[in-house]
Simulated assay, not measured.
Amino acid sequence: MLKIGCHLSTSKGFKNMGKEALEIKANTFQFFTRNPRGSKAKAIDEKDVAEFLELAKENNFTTILAHAPYTLNACSADENTRAFAKEVMEDDLARMEYTPNSLYNFHPGSHVKQGVEVGIKYISDLLNEVLKPEQTTTVLLETMAGKGTEIGRTFEELQEILSRVRLSDKMGVCLDTCHVYDAGYDIVNDLDGVLEQFDKIIGLDKLRAIHLNDSMNPFESHKDRHATIGEGSIGLEAIANIINHPKLCNLPFFLETPNELEGHAKEIALLKSIYKVV
């Protein structure tokens, strides 16, 4: 069974996100924990969450993925911005326990000319402060395209963060197909080689989710512009290889393509039609 979903709006609550996912034949979804460009988080409606959990159980949903706001920069040069990142992540992880055993993804951040080493230390320090032994949520570092001073453009940078986190069992990686392709990992012509690199440097056991996106820009462009599945420089054949790869096919895939719900429904139908794993 293909584990597939897209990004849905949290404005109508968890139960309605679950219903929207079912409408487009998805069995999971991604959502922002709060305003993606701000700090405000909607109050948790426990009744709504309980109804969603029942809906998810009845319809065999797989793991859902929460996405931290884009404003969270754990390695900023500004102390107040780092303090904000800690406050947001602590609050998000507490809220995530309403939907146990879920995934929480965040962009490692931009070191803003401080240097990668300094940025990595800030990120790992924050994770060591906010992660709790009792939490059921797995926190994911997202692979990045390498714009500006982004951290996470290489597998080595992600591993350096992971190696410094004490509660390593609470951590994983979300691989974004557009980002890694734009960063210079050739998943079109050498998917096996890229996965071998990932396994050697990080370990495939740490790969917990995939953002399934085509790319508007060419290989190694460091641009990070997502395209609809099959309409970018990665292409449908490479996407098919990714979702059918024996080391990837059982992971949850999340679309972040430039589409509305109807467009995502078409993409999901297309992906299901080329998914060959029994």
Score class of each variant (00 low, 15 high):
Asn250Phe: 13
Lys266Phe: 01
Ile187Ala: 11
Asn16Ile: 15
Phe32Ile: 04
Asn101Gln: 01
Glu142Phe: 10
Ile242Thr: 09
Asn241Cys: 03
Ala227Glu: 15
Ala265Leu: 11
Asn16Phe: 08
Asp224Thr: 02
Gln30Glu: 12
Ala83Glu: 10
Pro218Met: 02
Gln30Cys: 11
Cys249Arg: 11
Ser163Lys: 15
Leu251Asp: 00
Lys132His: 08
Val173Trp: 05
Ala77Gln: 06
Asp125Gly: 02
Glu23Tyr: 01
Gln114His: 04
Lys247Cys: 12
Thr10Arg: 08
Gly152Phe: 03
Thr177Pro: 02
Asp45Phe: 06
Ala94Lys: 12
Ser273Asp: 13
Gln114Ser: 09
Ala94Leu: 12
Leu255Val: 07
Gln135Phe: 07
Ile239Trp: 11
Ile201Asn: 03
Met171Leu: 15
Ser11Pro: 01
Asp182Gly: 05
Ser233His: 15
Glu51His: 06
Lys25Met: 11
Asn250Ser: 14
Asn259Val: 05
Tyr275Leu: 10
Thr10Asp: 04
Gln30Ile: 05
Pro218Val: 02
Leu162Tyr: 08
Ser9Ala: 10
Ala56Met: 07
Gly230Cys: 08
Leu248Asn: 08
Asp205Phe: 12
Leu195Ile: 12
Ile268Tyr: 05
Asp176His: 07
Gly193Val: 14
Gly203Thr: 11
Leu131Gln: 06
Glu262Lys: 15
Asp78Arg: 05
Ile120Trp: 01
Ala56Gly: 11
Cys249His: 13
Ile64Thr: 11
Tyr275Lys: 01
Val180Phe: 12
Tyr181Ala: 09
Leu204Thr: 06
Ile239Leu: 11
Gln197Ile: 07
Glu160Thr: 15
His226Met: 11
Glu97Gln: 06
Val278Met: 13
His211Pro: 02
Leu271Glu: 06
His222Arg: 15
Thr137Asn: 05
Ala83Asp: 08
Ala50Gln: 10
Ala74Thr: 01
Ala269Asn: 07
Asn60Glu: 15
Ile268Pro: 08
Leu158Val: 07
Ala183Glu: 07
Gly172Tyr: 13
Ser9Ile: 10
Thr257Leu: 04
Tyr104Trp: 11
Asn213Lys: 00
Val188Asp: 07
Ser215Ile: 03
Leu8Cys: 01
Ser76His: 00
Lys266Trp: 01
Val139Ser: 08
Gln159Asp: 15
Asn213Ala: 02
Ala265Asp: 09
Phe106Asp: 00
Thr99His: 05
